[in-house]
Every structure is written in C-alpha cells, then in structure tokens.
Amino acid sequence: MDAKELRGIKGVVAAAALFIIFFGVFSSFLQLEGNVARGISEEYNKLAYKMAPNNLASWVYDYRAIDTLLETGVIYVGAVVSVLVLGRGLVRLKVPEEDEIVKVTGMDLKTETMPVLLKYFALPVVILLIAYGLLVVLEAPTSGGGGFQCGVIVSSAYLLSVIIYGKKSPFEIKKKTLVALGAFGWGLYVLMGLPGYLTTGYWQYNVGSDLWSWLSSFPGEVPEILKTVFGEPFKLALQLKEGVFYATSGILPIINIGEAFNVIGAICLIFFAFIYGWSDPEEEKLE
C-alpha cells in the first residue's frame, strides 16, 4: 500500500485505526506500571549486599549471566543468518537467469580525493575508539558498560576505517579471524558457567574469584610483591555509611570480555557481509 492511496474514506479509517492502537498501547503501558515493585529488589540487597559493586550487578547476580548468554547467542545467530542470506551461492531458493539479476556495483571509495582532515585524523580516531571500547568492557562491573557496548564500539571503529580508507583499510580483519573471534567469545562465555556449576550446581552462577588461593596450590609460592601490587583481582572496596565492604564481581568481568569478543566478531561479520558481499579482497585477486 502506498501512502498516496490513503485519501478519502480510507484515510479516515486508517487514522481511526491508529487512534485505537494508540489508546490500546498506552493503556497497556500504564497497566504495566502498577505491577512493578519500586526500587531495587530488596531481596538481592539483603542477600548479596556484601558482594555486588553496584546494583546492576545485584539483580544481575543470578540472572544476568544466563540472560547475556542468550543475548550472545542471538547476536551470533543474527550474524550467521545475514551472512547466509547475503552470501554468494550459499542460499539460493530459485536460481534467477543472468539478465534478471540486478547488478549492484560496489561502493566508490577513492582515497586520493579524501579530505586532509579525514586522512590524518581517521586512524588516530580508530585507535582511540578501540581503546575506548576496551575501557567500556573493563569497567563493566562498576558502571553501565558491558560486552555488547564494547563490541558495538569496536565494530563501529572497524566500519569507520573501512568506509574512510576503502580496501586499503588499516583495521582490516579477515573473515576467518572474525568467525574465530565470535566463536572464541561464545566458547569462553559458555565455559565460564563451569566454575559456578562445579561449586553450586547452577550453571552460570556467579562465584567469587579468589585466584591467589588457587595459585598457591601449585608448586612454588606466589611472591608477596605480586599479591601487594595486584591485590585481589577484580576486588573493590565499597565505602558506605555502614562501613567498608569488600566486593568482588566474580566471573562477570571475564564473561564480559567473552561477550565483547563475540559481539566484535558478529557485528563486524554483518558489516563485512554488507560491504564485501562475503568475499575477501584477497579471494577476488585469486579469481
């Protein structure tokens, strides 16, 4: 249907339908509001207030890991499906004849005519963007960051680099590397459910990480200097009104790094498939 067809009675009916939808959706949103407990769940704060560095991590404690696992699965499936849809020769429902296929020319990217500002500042910006992505993923336990945000930032750096420099992109990742990154991230993520399963019986349960006690069981003692400098990894001190509490976010930082790798792989793969059509520049040379 085209918007131009909506004249006369059709338009009135369309507008009336939109009004009905508006009030239906609005009333359902308002009903949602009454059914939600206010504030942070007190239960979590009572159970886990000595452990959670922020309350994102507190409600997250038993829920976020499995939730984010599904998230990583979704993004990976999305990448794989769009690559399959766009890929050459992988999925063809019905082979169209040669003259029926619309020829799509690639993006015209000329680095010679690039403005000087872009030419000299794009690469520093790309490097700083990757560093920012790493910052976001590593501050995940104490802020609103996380693996997905890091993945999107790094893959936007990848897209920026590809769009500005074209095929001479300095941040060029081969598709095998991308697939490996995604698979490595997901694998790391799934395996991090194992410590929780072994200790509590629940998959992806967030267990505190006390690395030094693990290491001391190995032959050779950990030097005191290392313990002093590194403290306990991922452990933080919370200065609250009731006193100083020591908090560890457990396996969440490692889980977030795994998710970040997965999302970098998946989203760069989507961009890759849209830009190059699932064919490396090197493969084209061979052809």
Partner: peptide, 11 residues
C-alpha cells in the same frame, strides 16, 4: 591496590 591494577594489565 584492590584489584585496580588487574584491569589495566588486562586492557
């Protein structure tokens, strides 16, 4: 330094 160096090294 309560685990504050670890993240720098990981970064």
């Amino acid at each position: 330094a309560l685990g504050e160096v670890t993240l720098t090294v990981v970064a």
